[in-house]
Design a protein around this nucleic acid. Structure first.
Lengths: 212, 212, 212, 212
DNA sequence: AATGAATGAGTATTCATTCAT
DNA sequence: CATGAATGAATACTCATTCAT
């Protein structure tokens, strides 16, 4: 049993190693330009071995975002479980997401790639399903926070909670894409911390219950 | 004279035809999957002829967005020149942009592609420059509207005008990406008109001068 | 008539212009790498115009060597007609040929190209024939010099005169190829004048009638 | 062990097979006209497999001459090591070289191609270097023979040994180009054996120490 | 005579993926 | 489980050459 377990652990580790290498290569070159050869070289495994763990380049690519997705969920749950005030929670969630995305830009790129269905077709059904489900679950989680805020009279009650989440999500992604492109300064943004802060302020301001 | 003019017109038309065909192919297949062969077949011209008008696949791709960009600018200027109220102008600009993007989804995809510098490297300098300049010009145009709004005491004066424009721009793109993916319903959006409307409401609400 | 003549002159001049441009392009790039586009650009004529004067790229290429061939023949006849001594004539002919080839390296390259029949197949029959005839005529001319030398008891009479010419010709080309490659120094040749001189000396020494 | 060795042998054999096929195709069509497709078809391997063994068409082409080069060196060393007289060795070397070139005409064509740097630019550095080094080594080998001849008072001592080698080399190549073109008869050469023999005679005659 | 515009035909190279071992 | 070796399929781009004017 001990043996079987070790084998299992080694297998999982190997899988993680591959994902790690893939992440770095995709990150440097983008999906199309990256090659399985280079990924294999970086994990120091042969190409066929990679195919033992992932069915296709697309699956590998998507699995990276899936892994991130789980990490994001973890951070999210921690934050929600904390006993901070609602607005503080909101901000924490927002900041945690932004932070994660800046540290793992591939998550943004890959999610967008999948959203835009550019690669959807070639991804294995089970992976795609897992990714979609998980993304929806993330939205649900945040929705609960929103509902609570509405109940407490903090957030506007004239909007569906999910709409609020989606607006937040899409704004954040939009801002991140600009930031990650490294071309903000061309548009007059010198201090991106301030820029994100201002953006959050506008959002919250727009979502707050008038008169509260 | 008449002849030279006609030739000139025909040449421009041919260029437009190619762009049109390219637009439809890229739209169906995405940049990588689309082939010059298919584009050529669709315009009913030979491949080399396409290369007479565009230096590379990347240039052709980018030129599509550039063309859109000019159209967007036109609509923008018309709206700004009208004598509607400021908030109405804001809404018109926003709607015009959304409408254009929904009718020409490639504009969104290509702009994002270029923003993410995934293809930047291979696009001819002059085209890239033209595109970048024009994008910045669009931002400037809208900035003026914002500045006017601030002067009149409508919009918050605690934010740089450009920040306001960028937030608006990135939110809109973020929303459009979701909409164009055709997967809104999975996230609980039934009526996307209403969804966009709500989003605009939140945005404006967040940008309005408190107490006004 | 004056008009017709002028036209005729202009036509010939244009032909020469094209050959000149072609010579410089082929010289820089080699046959395959050179393009009709670049040649056209360099003569400042359109591509179809070039085809008005030459039937194909190969014809144009070959015509350059043909032009050289005539020039070589001229120099040869001048030398032979002079009243210098036989050995001096020999040396003059050899030097004139070498000089011409160094000044017009394409002549060497193209002749070799044609000899190796790498391009023969695609050259127009009449041009090929003209080139071949002329080359043979050159050999004949020099043969006469050799025959005279044999009669006078200067050169060995145990060899066919044509063999002597061919040996001379092939040695010279062989040496020129090395020189034109610019890689002599790698083989220890510092002073190519001396090198050519020595070569001539060996050749003459080998051809002289023993005991004379 | 046995297995690894067999694999290694098979790999080398495959490499040789490819070279063999390439040799025959290049020989029939010339460098430019030959296609990788045809070479692949002739070895009955897929095109990518060829690229597993050679980095480019140019490398493949050059490698053919390199292979010949080694064979030539072998024959050369055998001859030099024999205990024949000096003049006999000279003649053996000369004949062996000629024989090899007539049996493997590509060697002449490719060497000349490389010498003329027409393709140099695109050949991998390591292959080019190997080829150049080996060519120089060949020249050195023969130089030793010449030096010995000079010391023994056989050959002229008023010429640098390398000059003698170069003259011999270039004359031989020049003659071979004529012979391989198959157009000697047009220039009056009926018996090419006799022609080569005469050429050698002239050369030796020109190189011998006068009075010896 | 001259040309702007158009094209047919061609080709090296790449890469995800799969066997046989 | 791991891999060395092999490949099918694909694709942007070039260029000599030719019409219609």
């Amino acid at each position: 049993m001990g043996i079987a377990e070790r084998k299992e652990r080694e297998k999982l580790q190997r899988r993680r190693d591959i994902l790690e290498a893939a992440r770095s290569v995709f990150s440097e070159k983008g999906f199309q330009t990256a090659t399985m050869d280079e990924i294999a070289e970086r994990v120091e495994l042969s190409k066929p071995t990679i195919y033992l763990y992932f069915d296709s380049k697309e699956d590998l690519y998507t699995s990276i975002a899936l892994e991130d997705s789980y990490k994001v969920m973890e951070r999210l749950k921690e934050t929600v479980a904390s006993d901070a005030g609602l607005v503080e929670k909101w901000q924490s969630v927002w900041l945690a997401f932004i932070e994660h995305c800046i540290e793992n830009p591939e998550y943004v790129y890959i999610s967008q790639h999948i959203l835009a269905q550019e690669s959807r077709q070639r991804v294995s059904d089970h992976i795609l399903e897992e990714f979609d489900n998980h993304t929806r679950e993330l939205v649900e989680q945040v929705s609960q926070l929103v509902e609570e805020s509405i109940e407490k009279g903090l957030a506007r009650d004239d909007l569906p909670p999910r709409t609020i989440v989606l607006i937040t999500w899409r704004l954040t992604i939009g801002l991140l894409e600009l930031h990650l492109s490294g071309r903000e300064t061309e548009f007059g943004v010198d201090d991106y911390h301030k820029f994100f802060e201002n953006s959050f302020d506008v959002l919250i301001n727009g979502l707050l219950q008038r008169g509260s």
